[in-house]
Amino acid sequence: MLALHFGAGNIGKGFIGYLLNKTGYDVCFVDVDQEAIDRFNETNRYHVELLDDAETTETVSPVSALNSLNQQEEVINRIQHADVITTSIGVHNLHRIAGTLANALLQRITWNHNKLDIIANENAINASSTLQAEVEKHVSPEEMEEILSLVSFPNASVDRLALSKEGADYETALVEPFYEWVINEKEMGNHDLPPIYGATYVNDLKPFIERKLFLVNMGHATTAYIAFLYEEPTIQSALENPDIETFVRGTMHESAQYFVENFDVSQDEMNDYIEKIINRFKNKNISDNIFRVGRAPLRKLGQNERLSKPTQELRRSGLPTEHLTVAIAAGFLFDNPEDEESVKLQNLIEERGIEKAIVHVTGLENDDICQAIQNNYTKLKEKNDLLSIVNQ
């Protein structure tokens, strides 16, 4: 069986490619890093090192790789022959591969009548649907109908911290022991292939996507933004501070009420899940730089994103948002001159003022929420006593 995966980055190597290989697939990566591509093809393997106390290392093989820039025909050929196609290139880059996919799929369906699933594993809601929409831009409605008779775009939710380590001989991915790959089974077209090792198949993906975004991603970003105010370099060092841990935990418990209110999940289940997340964040085998985690604040503070969306939903239900409005305020104070979005955010605040910046970036229309964020922004600039701000 052949799996074609777009994106040979940390998630591609340490998560998606790793599990596809365990399922029995020969994995071919498509990327633009020629040095990495050459290493894949020379060794036909790479290493995955677990960030656990035992420093467990596994070898993933056989693997190969293609360059999407100068091996277009080979990539198209692999698309036509693949048994499954996956991505982890970032949701904003999906449009870059859509034309190649469209071209290859039109050729594929003329002779290969096997069903094909294309799963975009990006840190976004319904990324596969986004990829499908991008493919549609390159074909006529009639051609897209033909493609969809054989090709499906099941959505997925993915969760695993993946880093990398430089090595002269092999590609090596560093990953936390925990992972979660949830796939919408109802949207799949090919049910003849074996289930992907370690993946969970569900009929309703929304609770899993939102749980990951509004709890894991939200908690991670919150920790980074608060850590910046406390001048802590990593997520792990920040959570050694009891005040920061207490605050992050409080923020996650607020967001968890959205799930208790809207899905068939108990408070005890959410409490257990929060403890699991906190323990993941505190893993001392990981050194997770706050500037990596907090990067792109314009996106992460956006209307339908990890901080603003649960705040809005909770306020509509009349539920507390004291911690969340502080976390959002901290995001507006995140100032990294090497991060393009951070620079734009600080320029926006300087040019238009914090009040207008909050409305512009978050899209929040509730005056009470925006006022709370603005008040917390002012308080955080004056002092870093998180708990007193929340308890006022």
Rank of each mutant, 00 (worst) to 15 (best):
P207F: 09
N184D: 15
G219L: 02
E122N: 08
N184M: 00
P177L: 03
L163N: 10
P233A: 07
K212P: 01
I147A: 03
L239M: 14
L193N: 02
N103R: 14
D159I: 00
T246R: 13
P177K: 05
S237D: 13
F214T: 00
I118D: 00
I125D: 10
T110A: 13
S157N: 04
K137S: 12
V175M: 06
G219D: 01
I119W: 07
M188Q: 11
Y197W: 12
G189E: 08
T172E: 14
E185S: 01
L116Y: 06
H113Q: 14
S237W: 02
T130E: 14
L148E: 15
P195L: 08
T172D: 02
L131H: 00
D159P: 04
P233S: 07
G167D: 15
F247D: 02
T223H: 05
E122P: 03
Y179E: 11
E210M: 06
A127G: 05
D243A: 15
T110S: 12
L215N: 06
R211Q: 14
E143K: 11
I147S: 00
E180A: 13
D117F: 07
V135I: 15
D117P: 07
S129L: 07
G219Q: 02
Q132S: 12
P195S: 07
F178S: 12
L213H: 03
E171C: 07
H220C: 02
T246W: 05
S129F: 04
F178T: 06
I235T: 15
E176T: 06
I119F: 05
S157R: 01
S129T: 13
L239C: 02
G198P: 04
E134Y: 14
N123M: 08
N203T: 14
D243Q: 15
R160D: 04
I119H: 01
A221R: 00
N155R: 05
E145V: 02
